[in-house]
Amino acid sequence: MTDEHADLRSHLHDPALDEGISATGLLAGVQARRRLVRRRQHLAAGAAAAVAALVVVGAAVVTTRQQPEPVTPAQQPASSAPSSPRPSSPRPSSSPVTTSTSPLSSPLPTTLPPPRARLDPTAEPRLSTGAREAAVPSAQPNR
């Protein structure tokens, strides 16, 4: 072993580097740090639980919103779409379009017919089932 190694060894074994170390003070520091670590672990666990709850609730909300809406039948367009292909035959320019002969052009009746009773106030009232049976033989022709 060279002298420089001995120098280094003697320096590293210098008892001055071991002065002032209190084992009880170290133990107190370790226990305080353990309490701190435990508290951090509890806080971390609480935070993780809160985050997990938020994630679950958020996922439920997103799933609910992303459900497809009930399918509604598409409405028929009232007139032909403007993009629909038009017939290639040229439209007569001079002849006006006549719609008076079209049956669809006639206006639909807007008023309903009045009830039957109002139309025929002299009609007989409808018979009940028993009365109808009693009336049937008299209606049959005599044989």
Binding site: L12, L17, D18, G20, I21, S22, A23, T24, L26, L27, G29, V30
Partner: peptide, 24 residues
């Protein structure tokens, strides 16, 4: 264990760090 070996550990850490506070 801490009472028995803590001082030696701090001494070892002092030689590594060359800093008493950081060693502790």
């Amino acid at each position: 264990f801490v009472l028995a070996h803590g001082a030696g550990l701090v001494g070892f850490a002092r030689r590594l760090t060359l800093d008493h506070h950081r060693a502790e």
